[in-house]
Amino acid sequence: MDVQGLTVQRSKIDVLVGLFVAAGLLAAVFLALKVGNLAGFDTEGGYRLEARFDNIGGLKARAPVKSAGVVVGRVESIALDRETYEARVLLQIFPEHRFSKDTIASILTSGLLGEQYVSLEAGGDSAYLASGDRIAKTQSAMILEKLIGQFLFSKASEPNAGGSK
């Protein structure tokens, strides 16, 4: 095989492999940006808020934090407080959003069977929550079994309960 032919063949292989690597990397970038939405989820940026709930229901880490339905952050971690037996939920809030001191955090469900998320309702206080602050007012997740139990209990305790029709 002459040297000229060898170099031609080598460069063709290089081009093919280069195309292959480029296509593979392009696919990885597509997975990161379009499927994984890396651009919209910057874990480094943003600040951290803490909220304590009596019961978080089925809330999971990485669940969205929404305000007026718009995603403004993520649930970073969930832990049980050893003294008060409350759930300690750390929220990572995107840096462009600020919330007043009297913001209410509640755990809601999107749709009937949907995932649970943390909803932040901003109040009227002029002071804003800073990184590491704790959200004072919280509302726990709605537990369907408890709700049904309460409903039955209140029905039974009504004065004319079990009355004849």
Partner: peptide, 19 residues
């Protein structure tokens, strides 16, 4: 289709672990 995918699939937890 795209927004729910993007809201759920995490870069580190899903994409990087898959790779």
């Amino acid at each position: 289709f795209w927004s729910q995918m993007q809201a759920t699939v995490d870069f580190r937890h899903d994409v990087l672990n898959g790779l």
